[in-house]
């Protein structure tokens, strides 16, 4: 299990146990974390699981591929240096995720 903390734009935070091998998106959806819609169920086609990752964690995560990069250009909340799609991120111990204000 990996402990992942999801912080909402209003400052509230939830820490949940996510099985290693699961995605950060799945961890949020299974635990009822608000604000990660994942309309397509994890296919990297809808950009509704947009999240922000802090700089320290960015280096540990797999790089952004072309498809994810294209989707990050059209997210509903602004793209920032830490922007990722949660469906493309494996659960890792201690990850802190900032959930953007809107996904649609």
């Amino acid at each position: 299990m990996a402990h992942i903390t999801y912080k909402q734009a209003d400052g509230t935070a939830t820490t949940v146990d996510v099985p290693v091998g699961c995605s950060v998106m799945r961890g949020a959806v299974d635990n009822g974390v608000d604000g990660i819609l994942a309309e397509c169920g994890g296919g990297a086609i809808c950009a509704t699981c947009h999240v922000y990752i802090d700089e320290a964690s960015t280096a540990k995560l797999p790089p952004i591929d072309d498809l994810e990069d294209e989707l990050l250009q059209v997210t509903a909340s602004p793209r920032l240096p830490g922007s990722r799609l949660a469906c493309q991120l494996p659960a890792m111990e201690g990850l802190v995720i900032l959930v953007p204000e809107k996904q649609l």
């Binding site: 990297a44 086609i45 809808c46 989707l71 250009q73």
Partner: peptide, 8 residues
Amino acid sequence: NRPADHII
């Protein structure tokens, strides 16, 4: 394979 077109 043009997901941004789809979203927009």
